[in-house]
Nucleic acid binder design. Structure first.
Length: 596
RNA sequence: GGUCCCGUAGCUCAGCUGGAUAGAGCAACUGCCUUCUAAGCAGUAGGUCUUUGGUUCGAAUCCAAACGGGAUCACCA
């Protein structure tokens, strides 16, 4: 039985024997004791004043005394107003440390036999990835790792949006102005090359709109009338008809883009188990439309278009099939949801998609429910906020984006500069150095994007956002490297830790106690982060742990310690912290260096 | 206009299902490297938690309204 449960049942017993209350185990709440007070766990007695008809202080005193007398874990207590602070004996902490924290399978949670699919990244193939995509990729990867750690069987999926009007825009611009340029001839990464023509299209398209507006055409109309737009739409039609030349161009340009994406994915260290291509799935969903019509969940309008009425759920009427029988975004997504379930039978399906699509996913889930799909309840939209720049929103078309590849490159350069500045790279090979810069640069970037609650939008200031000091990835990596140095030295000196000697230890240093308390919380943190789909909770936790260790490091000497048991314990303590930091950072997709 | 999200220190952010004197980091200021890595540690200063009501023994947290910011309400994806 774990400590909290033991104390709770102790309190429940106290309430029963001292005040005659029935079993309260379920309702008793314990919270961590605030730093200013002595103790580790706090019981709040206010809620029991009416039941016991006693003053909060008196309840605290009575229960505190009972626990101290009856539980060996409780060494002492103090009462401040309605707060009963419990001091747990160091012996208890040491026993938890050696039996639980140090055990091989600590924080290794058993499989829960459930499968979850996490779809993330899902890029358009007409332009390179930018900072917003990085947040998406890092979130998706990290959430997958966290779900795995909490016992799920995870399938990471990437639905590539490889067809549609946006790709045709790039293709058209390339046809018109590309002069047969290739990634090889231009030296541009494939996705950047495609992006270049997307931007070019938009520039020329805007000119055409302006000309039309000058001729007195309304803006909305001008957008439709512009010749470039009409040509792009023609391309799309030809593509759908299977026009050989167009399909070949599409395949060629998409090929370039995939090469580019794969290079970026490899650099930033994200992976997928399954790729879906929209060109294969965009016709799906029509059978769902049939099904919905048969079930009378959907209805047909006179022009033949198919709709669903969601007004009773506070939403609008939603189109599912155009009058000409072609499908729209939501139709495809319905089809894909069904396909995913048929293929993987996952109980949960997580979509890592920006919060601008909140409405879309509300509709999607609602329709699946109305159709009586068993998997509807498992659909979860992990809706994350945008990354804003000081100048406002990022827009690919207008080129006001922070490009992912550029940013990563910059991060590695900064990592290199910082490292050289500090001059601690003696004994590193050139290869080691490059690997280190990558760990640090990406660590800083990933941590920066993951430490914030996914749901919230965040600000990225290129000038000053990503630091290497303070609440950052490199701070945590540094702590790990520091501990690694200690463990290396311990090995060299052949100081091993021996659990048996811990019991002969006297008192723990407060910083050691704090560290142990934090470490015991790791498994529940993983569960909580999985439940909330929130890597930020892991990020925050690992930061707190690293901070606690550095505090310990400053206060307590290790190798000059003469008491063998204390020395042994501190090595074990350091080892355990390093292990958790490493594991926690893995859950964020961040690598950790032995030296830096 | 309807719906949804957000508003905490100069800046960027924590604050779990309501609990004690609201926490970190950056920036500012003080100290600490001949002793295990100073990308660190210790400390000072900085807050009417947007505002106003309400519920409660207790509200940054829950409810309502106002103000401010954002997203969305496409036969685009």
């Amino acid at each position: 039985m774990n400590l909290e449960k033991k104390i709770k049942s102790g309190i429940s017993e106290a309430l029963k024997s001292q005040f005659g209350l029935e079993d309260q185990t379920e309702t008793i709440q314990l919270q961590p004791t605030k730093k200013e007070f002595e103790g580790a766990l706090t019981f709040v007695s206010f809620p029991y004043t009416s039941k016991t008809k006693k003053a909060p202080e008196q309840i605290g005193e009575t229960i505190g005394k009972f626990l101290k007398d009856n539980l060996e874990e409780v060494a002492d207590f103090n009462v401040v107003k309605g707060f009963l602070n419990l001091v747990i004996s160091d012996k208890t902490w040491l026993s938890i440390f050696s039996n639980s924290v140090l055990s091989e399978d600590f924080a290794v949670l058993p499989s829960n036999g459930k499968r979850v699919m996490v779809e993330y990244s899902s890029p358009n193939t007409n332009k390179p990835l930018h900072l917003g995509h990085l947040r998406n990729n890092f979130l998706g990867y990290s959430v997958s790792e966290i779900l795995k750690a909490s016992g799920y069987d995870v399938v990471k999926a990437n639905l590539i949006n490889d067809r549609g009007i946006h790709i045709c825009k790039s293709m058209l611009a390339y046809q018109l102005w590309g002069n047969g340029e290739t990634p090889q001839s231009s030296g541009l990464k494939g996705d950047h090359l495609a992006g270049k023509y997307y931007v070019l299209f938009d520039k020329e398209y805007k000119k055409e709109i302006d000309v039309l507006k000058g001729q007195g055409v309304e803006e909305e109309e001008a957008k439709k009338q512009a010749p470039l737009m009409k040509q792009a739409q023609e391309l799309l039609l030809k593509w759908e008809e299977g026009d050989k030349e167009i399909v070949a161009l599409w395949e060629k340009m998409n090929g370039w883009v995939y090469d580019g994406f794969n290079a970026t994915y490899k650099t930033i260290g994200v992976t997928f188990d399954k790729f879906y291509y929209e060109s294969n799935t965009y016709l799906l969903g029509k059978n769902i439309v049939e099904e919905g019509l048969a079930k009378k969940v959907f209805f047909k309008k006179p022009d033949g278009s198919v709709w669903v009425d969601l007004t009773s759920d506070g939403l609008d009427e939603k189109l599912l099939l155009r009058g000409d029988g072609t499908s729209v975004y939501i139709t495809q997504d319905l089809g894909t949801a069904d396909l995913k379930f048929q293929e993987y039978k996952a109980e949960k399906s997580v979509y890592v998609v920006g919060n601008e699509q909140d409405y879309h996913f509300n509709v999607l889930k609602l329709i699946l429910k109305k159709l009586g799909k068993s998997y509807a309840d498992g659909v979860y939209h992990l809706s994350y906020g945008m990354v804003d720049l000081p100048s406002g929103k990022m827009k690919s078309r207008e080129g006001t984006v922070v490009d992912a590849d550029d940013l990563v490159k910059e991060m590695l350069e900064t990592a290199e500069a910082r490292t050289k500045e500090l001059g601690k790279i003696e004994g590193f090979s050139e290869e080691d150095l490059q690997a280190l810069y990558k760990k640090l640069g990406l660590g800083a970037l990933k941590y920066f994007l993951l430490k914030v609650d996914p749901k919230k939008r965040m600000l990225f200031n290129p000038e000053e956002s990503i630091e290497f000091q303070g609440h950052t990835g490199p701070f945590i990596q540094y702590t790990y490297a520091r501990i690694s140095a200690i463990l290396r030295k311990a090995k060299q000196l052949e100081v091993d830790y021996n659990k048996e000697t811990f019991s002969s230890l006297g008192n723990l240093h407060p910083s050691e106690r704090e560290g142990i308390v934090l470490m015991t919380k790791f498994p529940e943190k993983i569960q909580e982060a999985a439940r909330n789909y929130a890597p930020s909770e892991i990020a925050q936790y690992i930061f707190d742990l690293a901070k606690a260790y550095n505090h310990f490091y400053g206060e307590v000497a290790i190798f000059s310690e003469e008491n063998k048991a204390a020395l042994s314990f501190r090595i074990a303590f350091s080892f355990a912290v390093a292990k958790i930091i490493n594991r926690g950072m893995q859950l964020l997709g961040i690598e950790v260096p032995e030296k830096m």
